[in-house]
Write a protein that binds this DNA or RNA. Structure first.
Ligand SMILES: [Mn+2]
Ligand SMILES: [Mn+2]
Ligand SMILES: [Zn+2]
Ligand SMILES: [Zn+2]
Lengths: 124, 124
DNA sequence: ATGTTATTTGCAATAAACTTGCAATAAGGA
DNA sequence: TCCTTATTGCAAGTTTATTGCAAATAACAT
């Protein structure tokens, strides 16, 4: 854990929203932390492997976002189409559906992704 | 409807799987249809606007796939992690969940994406 | 503390998917 | 046919992310 990596981790801790590599880069530069964008990519990769960070690939965004794992269970997200705010949905309604799909398709289901989009209270 | 566009549409009709722009390009070239990759991108864009084609952005693929709409209702997909086969799931289990999420989050839910991954019968 | 080794970082270059500008070509209507 | 508009190909550009490599830093042993 170098101080560069700690700076990234600390930023993830104080950021309530899932954040992209470029946003990490720009935010740290604003805080006068010198870090290369490549190092940001490599750092989030390491933090993912350590199980400290989750990568989110939200639909239609075309970039990856990262959030602290912090013992979070499997969960999903909803994103506001106007302001981009992302909120955790601490539920998963797909256990029964998974069984049904396995019966219908003869696949063995391993995983799923689920994401909602809409308008947050402020943007309505 | 030029013959270039008809060639793309005809390929989508005879292809059972959602297919990417590069795959359309390569397949048509194998069939001796001269077409530029840029034209493929522009053509699927037009076909989408005409409501003939659906664009799929499957998780972890990093590219767009296209399938004929053909009066298909809103539906979801399951993809085999080994061979890449994609199958339609002609169901949507999220109507009730959507209401619950609107209550919990105060968002107005507009849309969602749902996708399963696993092993197809042949790859198990 | 010093030297030795392994890890981390920055810079430059590269990759992949997709988009845009623009001139050449093809289509369609008078 | 002629003229206008839409379509296409080529080149170049964008965006997000990855890779090679040498320099800097950290970790470790003496
Ligand atoms: Mn989350
Ligand atoms: Mn489908
Ligand atoms: Zn789930
Ligand atoms: Zn649905």
């Amino acid at each position: 854990m170098t101080r560069t990596r700690q700076a990234v981790l600390a930023l993830l801790q104080r950021t309530r929203q899932p954040i992209s590599a470029t946003e990490i880069f720009e935010q740290l530069h604003q805080e006068k932390v010198a870090i290369d964008l490549v190092t940001v990519y490599r750092t989030v990769h390491v933090l993912k492997e350590l199980g400290l960070v989750l990568q989110l690939d939200l639909h239609q965004e075309g970039l990856a976002r990262y959030e602290l794992k912090e013992g979070r269970e499997h969960h999903h997200h909803i994103r506001c189409q106007i302001c981009g705010q992302i909120e955790d949905l601490l539920l998963c309604p797909l256990k029964k559906v998974t069984k049904l799909i396995e019966q219908r398709t003869q696949f063995i289901v391993d995983d799923h992704t689920l994401e909602f989009t809409g308008l947050c209270p402020q943007c309505q």
